[in-house]
């Protein structure tokens, strides 16, 4: 069973003197992946908003045309 390799939390953060490089790598990677996931999700939401806006607009136009015909 693997056990915790560091004696304290500050020891863990220090990463044996390589803390800056290790956390820079992990931080940068997590940031890039989250940004990609967020952007991809937002693209889809934007499409749905845009389309439903268009559908609503078309419905309003049709309603108006019906009224004018009467």
């Amino acid at each position: 069973m693997p056990s915790f390799n560091f004696t304290s939390f500050s020891d863990f953060l220090a990463m044996g003197g390589y803390g800056f490089f290790v956390w820079l790598s992990f931080g940068g990677s997590i940031g890039a992946l989250l940004a990609l996931g967020w952007y991809s999700k937002r693209q889809q939401q934007q499409f749905i908003q845009q389309q439903s806006g268009r559908a609503a607009r078309e419905a309003r136009v049709r309603q108006q045309q019906d009224r004018e015909q009467v």
Binding site: P2, F4, N5, V22, S25, F26
Partner: peptide, 20 residues
């Protein structure tokens, strides 16, 4: 990051391997 031993040559810097 926390539960493997450090590398005998590279110390804890080798942990970057897990994303690299």
């Amino acid at each position: 990051l926390g539960f493997t031993p450090a590398d005998y040559q590279q110390g804890d810097s080798y942990r970057i391997i897990h994303v690299h």
